[in-house]
């Protein structure tokens, strides 16, 4: 019986360790643009997910380096952040009413948000693609 308990404790310990380190690595704040701007002091360079609307007039795609520059607006439209993403613009980026989610961190040197992942979410009814 004693050995079962030791084995159990070991297993639970290992499991807990994995869970905690996993949460550290994989969970991040999911914020709206304005929430993000308000919290930027506390967040500093932590990895976060920010969602908002794309400013359709101000999308720039640098062909040579394949870098996408865009402005992510708040739903109310009065605050925005500048986002840099390395990769081609996804299919539905300029579609009306889409929400864009960027995952990455703030880079103070360039004063912009460097996105590692960029997802487009659609308002319409069924399953939509993502672009990582």
């Amino acid at each position: 019986m004693k050995r079962f308990i030791i084995a159990g404790v070991l297993m639970i310990g290992a499991f807990g360790y994995l869970l905690i380190t996993g949460m550290k690595e994989g969970s991040m704040y999911y914020l709206e643009v304005s929430e993000y701007i308000n919290a930027i002091e506390d967040l500093k360079e932590r990895k976060v997910r920010v969602h908002g609307r794309v400013d359709r007039e101000k999308i720039a795609f640098e062909e040579q380096t394949s870098t996408l520059l865009l402005f992510l607006k708040d739903t109310k439209g009065n605050e925005f952040i500048k986002v840099k993403y390395k990769g081609p613009p996804p299919d539905l980026l300029t579609e009306e009413g889409v929400t864009v989610v960027v995952e990455g961190r703030y880079n103070p040197e360039e004063d912009l948000f460097v996105a590692r992942r960029l997802l487009v979410k659609c308002p319409s009814k069924y399953e939509k693609g993502s672009n990582t």
Binding site: L18, G22, G26, S27, M28, Y29, Y30
Partner: peptide
């Protein structure tokens, strides 16, 4: 908050 693939993979 959002829990992403890094958590699940890890």
């Amino acid at each position: 908050i959002s829990v992403g693939p890094p958590y699940f993979n890890r």
